[in-house]
Simulated assay, not measured.
Amino acid sequence: MTGSAAHGAPSRLPFDLPRLGIGTAPLGGLFQEVTDQDAAATLGAAARAGITYFDTAPRYGHGLAEERLGRLLPPAGIIEPVISAKTGWLLRPGPDGAPGDVVTDWTERGIRTSLESSLTRPRRSSVDVLYLHDADDHAEVVRRTACPAVRRLRDEGLVRAIGFGMNHSGPLASYVAEFDVDVALIAGRFSLLDHDALTTLLPLCVKTGTAVVVGGVLSTGLLAAPFPGAMFNYRPVPAEALARAQRCRALCAEFEVPLAAAAIQFPFLHPAVTSVVVGCRPATEVTANAAASRFPIPDELWHRLAAAGFVPPQLLG
């Protein structure tokens, strides 16, 4: 089990998703502005690290992350990226072209309009994966119009695979159970600090052959740098979560393993998981996360983490 314990289950995806991808919300200015120069350096570091998978959405910087992918990926040396995009939300421009509102639209016309914009900004004729984005409370309209719409887009070849991308594993599991989708993106609910996806979503995805992409494995940065002032689940970290992260780091340090390495490789202990996407802002984070994804992790550390409650014991056989 040294390294990750990936032993992936059969997947209905028509292609292989790369094991490690970059979540592009930081390139859209999440938490702080990123210059074009810094975004180009981040994507250049991805090219040098062999990372070709990028997850994006219109809501990331009001289209800025998508636009930067289209403009900066080829100069970075990534000619044939794997891109997952999201739909269900439309961007409304403000006065004089300034960013305006982001509104939900689950109609077929809204789904198509969103995808057309998400193809224009990154300068592509198709995307590899299209997720219905944060559809938690929209089951009726998803059932009536959104799911049929993305299926037609897949049939037309504008997308290669379809799925749902959400932050809550319960509603996501319900959608996977009901709809014929290829992939599910779960953010923040399967990490060293949160095992919520384990009880419902992941076993279901093994049964249905639905590939799983896990985001938020660093818990908004806490598992990269567990210090006071860190963010956790997009908010300032509570004392209890900080103490748990620091305990986890101390256990990893006993084996001379970086905490980020255990955090990034943890999801692959489950056979449903195909890929992990990690948000990266500076180029140094890309390089560090790529190295962490390959760092050797001894079996004994996984068992120590399990005994401390950070790894569900059933994942270790």
Rank of each mutant, 00 (worst) to 15 (best):
H7E: 13
R19G: 03
G21Q: 08
I22C: 03
A40H: 10
A40L: 14
T42R: 06
L43G: 13
G44M: 11
A46G: 07
A49I: 06
G50A: 14
T56W: 03
T56H: 08
Y60P: 10
E66A: 07
E67F: 14
L73K: 08
P74K: 12
P75V: 12
P75W: 13
G77Q: 13
I79C: 15
L90I: 01
R92F: 12
P95N: 05
P95L: 14
P95F: 08
A98R: 14
T104S: 07
T104A: 12
T113N: 10
P122R: 06
R123K: 10
R124S: 02
V142R: 00
R143D: 01
A146V: 00
R151I: 00
D155F: 14
G157M: 14
F164H: 00
V181F: 00
V183S: 12
G188H: 01
D194I: 10
D196Y: 12
C205H: 08
V206P: 01
K207M: 09
V213Y: 07
G216I: 08
T220W: 06
A224W: 07
F232A: 14
F232Q: 10
R235K: 15
P238L: 04
A239C: 05
A245E: 04
C248T: 11
L251I: 15
C252Y: 12
A253V: 05
A260V: 10
A263R: 09
A263D: 03
S275F: 11
S293A: 13
F295H: 14
I297C: 03
P312D: 12
